[in-house]
Amino acid sequence: MKKRNVFIVVSLLTAITGVSIEAHHANSLYDRSTDITISGTVSKWQFINPHAGLWLDIMGENGEKQEWSAEFQGTLDLYRHFKFNKDTFKPGDSITLIGHPARTGGPTISTRIVIFADGSEVDVRSAPD
């Protein structure tokens, strides 16, 4: 598990149909045409509205620690569809996130997929009808 690199996988995901985000930010700071993947250790989980936030400490290739933030949808979609709550992430948890990067290149993403330490995945944008 020493590979806590920021491995940025840019994939052209043009087919983002069926997205059920609350869309507070249609023209937001996130580039919704691409995805990146980040892995690290949870430092904070803000389970609030209108958007929950997760913070990860990530080790760069040069060994420098960098803090990234990840935006989620609001608490009630996360709770109703995925059973997330205030205890879903704890400081120290190893987590991988896939999501849209900030247009500015800053250390923040809009989360699409969560991969937990046990390998289980949750596509947090897939709210069942």
Binding site: Q46, I48, N49, P50, G53, E71, T75
Partner: peptide, 24 residues
């Protein structure tokens, strides 16, 4: 509108002020 089988819950917009996310 579609019928839902869940309960309404609390949604406090003003929690926005507590958010530390950059876009918030």
């Amino acid at each position: 509108f579609k019928s839902r089988d869940f309960e309404l819950a609390e949604f406090i917009c003003q929690e926005l002020m507590l958010s530390e996310l950059p876009e918030m």
